[in-house]
Amino acid sequence: MLTDAQDLKPGFPDPVPDAQWAFRGILHAMSYPGRITQAGLALTPPRSLDQAAAAIGLSLFDFDTPLWFDRPAVLAEATNFFQFHCGSPSVATPGEARFAIVSDAAQLITLEVFDRGTDEAPDRSATLIIQVPEITEQAEGVTLSGPGIKEPLSLCIDGLSTDFWRQRRALQSLFPRGIDIVFTAGSRFIGLPRTTLVET
C-alpha cells in the first residue's frame, strides 16, 4: 500500500554510518535511563514522526520486527516510511509487535496489551517508542532510579494519560518480564528500560 513516490520521505542519507551513530544514541539512552539524549541527524521524516523516532526506527527495524502503530490513520505515512526503508511488516494486534510507535500517549490503551516476554525468555518482549510533546528535567516530575542511574533523577514527560505511571509501576513487579520504552520529543529522547523504578 505504498503511496506516491513523492510522498515518501528519504531515509538515512548515508545508511551505514548514520545507523551506527543513531544506535549509539539509543545505546547511551538505554544505558543511562532518563538522561535526555539528542538525535542530531538531519532527517526529514514524515510529519507524524519525530526526528528521534525516525532515527531509532531506521537503525533498528527490519523484516524481523513487526510494528504496531497506535493510530494507523494518523501514522499511515510513517507506516509506509518504515515499510519502504526497513521492510518491516505492520501488525494490527499490539501483542504481536516487537516495536510499537505511539503518537498519542494520552489515549494509549493499557500497557498490558504488549508482549512482556516470558520468565524464561524475557528478551522476547516489545519496545515502545512513545512520542510526547516535551520532556524536561524538573523536580516536580517523576523520579527515576535503578541500573544506569547514579543519583535518582526527576523528569517531566508531557502528554501521558493519568493512569500511565500506575500501569508502568505495576509492571515492575513482573521483572524480568516487562516492556522497554523510549520517549521521544522532536529530536530529544530518553530511555526507560524495564529495570527503571518510577516514583510519582
Binding site: Q20, L27, M30, L60, P147, P176, R194
Partner: peptide
Amino acid sequence: YNFAYLDEQTKRMIRRALLKAITIPGY
C-alpha cells in the same frame, strides 16, 4: 569490506539483542 566487517542486517540483529541485554542485566 563493509564498515566493521559485518553486514548491516547482522549488526541490526546484534544491536537489538544488545538493547534487550541492557534492559535485563545479566540475562
